[in-house]
């Protein structure tokens, strides 16, 4: 086919594109994946028995505030890197703000607690499974994002993979809050963040392979 014929064929195939199409598509991938993750955790380990009660307290919202704000930051990062010209990536440093806020809360909590209890606060009851469960729950969401990316056009594949990993990890952590009864900020800061970080690493590793497009 010569180029002129190709141009004719392409312009006959034109359909309008809605505004914010990239954001919509990413959101769809995340929500679909997160529903699968939520079903997984609720059907196997169940929600925390006091979920309703906890949602009326502040610690639950500290956790959700942390994971949700990371999710929002990750959506922006991913939407940028899903375009061929990501442009200036410096605004993405805003993602450290939730981490710093949570660290501040953690320090305040530690100061209010006798130092003999610090280790217990830090390790909780589930430190050895928490990062792995977050990583596991990130898998369906990452798969959902791979679906989103099939129509997108990243050119910095490793960075795009890492951003998608962050998005999958942060939203997986949001889902995991439905089950996890831990309360201390330093627990979340350490073990949730570790699980999210593993998802980022996994995304960076897989991005160049799975996000290449033609």
């Amino acid at each position: 086919m010569n180029t002129e014929q190709l141009i004719g064929a392409l312009s006959r195939d034109l359909k309008p594109v809605r505004r914010y199409a990239v954001g919509r598509r990413l959101a769809l991938g995340v929500v679909a994946g997160a529903l699968v993750s939520a079903a997984l955790i609720l059907l196997t380990l169940g929600s925390r028995p006091d979920l309703w009660l906890a949602m009326q307290g502040s610690t639950f919202w500290v956790k959700w505030g942390y994971t949700l704000s990371l999710t929002v930051a990750a959506i922006f990062a991913t939407a940028r890197l899903a375009r061929p010209d990501p442009g200036n990536l410096r605004p993405l440093w805003w993602a450290v703000v939730p981490v710093l806020l949570l660290a501040t809360i953690g320090v305040v909590e530690l100061m209010r607690t006798p130092s003999t209890n610090w280790l217990g606060m830090w390790l909780g009851h589930s430190w050895h499974v928490c990062p792995w469960l977050v990583l596991l729950l990130a898998v369906p969401i990452f798969i959902g994002l791979l679906w989103s990316f099939r129509r997108l056009a990243p050119t910095r594949l490793r960075a795009a993979g890492a951003a998608a990993g962050l998005l999958a990890g942060a939203s997986a952590a949001t889902v995991y809050c439905l089950h996890c009864p831990e309360v201390s900020a330093i627990f979340v800061l350490t073990w949730y963040s570790l699980g999210i970080l593993l998802a980022v690493l996994g995304g960076a590793l897989l991005g160049p392979r799975l996000m290449r497009w033609r």
Partner: peptide
């Protein structure tokens, strides 16, 4: 040109 077409949403 094909990529411009299929990825125009980006």
């Amino acid at each position: 040109l094909i990529a411009v077409h299929t990825r125009r949403a980006t």
